[in-house]
Design a protein around this nucleic acid. Structure first.
Lengths: 242, 242
DNA sequence: CAGTGGTCTAGACCACCTC
DNA sequence: AGGTGGTCTAGACCACTGT
């Protein structure tokens, strides 16, 4: 997959950087050298370099070149949309996923969800509650809502694995973008039941609405973390233009 | 400023969207129509459209067109690097800034800062602590560290206004990117002194290292918010490529 | 001055969607 | 078939950086 050239160049250069072939502070070969070695036009190299810059690998400087700014110590959760399973693989921490409940309910029971996913009262939706455990202790509680009609074949077994994998590979949908919201909120009774008695009785709550590439909102997710353990890392640029 | 064409087109289209000339769900004119009406080449229009997509205004769809996905209700703090003053202007909430302290100290007194800004022991740095007040109540405590040599003329008056404005307009530096980290932590004694006794005694701590466009780290900032009031909004895409 | 990245163009071919 | 966006090219001119 991803057969286009600039993506291949991006992959190639980003893995070189991650593997340490270039170190922070070094200058990447110039665009001219890169277009020669990859045998492509300049704009194609530039697309790859722009991706590297947007994702925090390099900083381009007019007249000088592209400096590597990637630092292995910076967590690579660059505020991108990745599934829990992917985060886990990056961090090499092994969590267990336990399905607490999977139910089919009418949309009207969750007004927030109904509004965000733009559904009528009686539209059936899945409500899925999962615990993420590390050494038998719950660290994250994930509550998801999906349109039932979009995935009538959902089972507890699938939910225990990667839902994203199921949606993208089995159902062939493309996940595209999301809006997240991070807040700090007091634990509910269910939170206390699943997390156990911890201090402070607060969670870091990450609410997100995930959209497919045709812009339909299809997932409403609430991910609650133990507040004391939560950390969100983000790489951002001042102006996307210029 | 920003004299290039694709930025002008981006500005033009994004303000049209924000002002409601196009509503969520509508389709933007096709690239062909846009290149005619703006009198530019296709790649130039496409650069503007890519900016709109990256910033969460539109979703492009092959074969169909560019759908407006911008929703005025979604907070426009799209995880970009903007100064406190800019956030304030967007939100139309009027905070007062009060300088609590401005001191020149050697870097070794703050090991975290020293490492992040890459300084030797004796390098002098500014330590600036500011309160952001709304109706006489402190809502945010900003602690900043800057290299002293980069801005020897810093005064409390300047610090009470916009430091970014000072750096960009007066000193002519370009602020480029930052790495943020959001955590929730118990209040320190200083926090309690400035925030007063609030429940829960926790803050949302946003730590960031800000870099100039030549990749030098120049600011270390810790922004503490009352946890119960904190909300971070983020727009993100799954793959930056494709 | 030569080398770097930034912008812009005109044209080509492709894949996708709708009619 | 005709319209849409996605990729790619070859070449041009500019602004910035170093020597």
């Amino acid at each position: 997959m991803n057969l286009n050239k600039y993506n291949q160049i991006y992959q190639s250069l980003s893995s070189d950087i991650v593997e340490g072939k270039y170190e922070a502070g070094e200058i990447l070969p110039s665009e001219h050298k890169l277009l020669e070695s990859f045998g492509v036009s300049r704009e194609t190299v530039r697309k790859a370099l722009n991706l590297l810059q947007e994702n925090g690998y390099i900083q381009k400087m007019k007249g000088k070149g592209s400096v590597i700014i990637y630092n292995p110590s910076m967590n690579l959760t660059v505020s991108h949309l990745i599934s829990f399973k992917e985060v886990q693989e990056q961090q090499e921490k092994i969590y267990t996923t336990k399905v607490y409940s999977l139910e089919k309910i009418p949309a009207e029971e969750c007004p927030n969800v109904q509004v965000s996913l733009n559904l009528s009262d009686q539209t059936p939706i899945w409500q899925l509650i999962r615990q993420r455990l590390y050494e038998d202790k719950t660290h994250i509680i994930d509550t998801d809502y999906f349109m039932y009609d979009m995935m009538p074949g959902l089972t507890e077994e699938i939910a225990a694995g990667s839902i994203y994998e199921y949606i993208e590979e089995r159902l062939g949908h493309k996940i595209s973008y999301s809006q997240k919201e991070i807040t700090f909120s007091p634990m509910t009774e269910l939170d206390i039941e699943l997390f156990g008695p911890v201090q402070p009785p607060y969670t870091a709550k990450v609410k997100s609405v995930v959209h497919l590439s045709d812009a339909t909102p299809f997932q409403y997710n609430v991910s609650k973390h133990l507040a004391s353990e939560f950390k969100f890392v983000d790489f951002s640029r001042r102006f996307t233009g210029e």
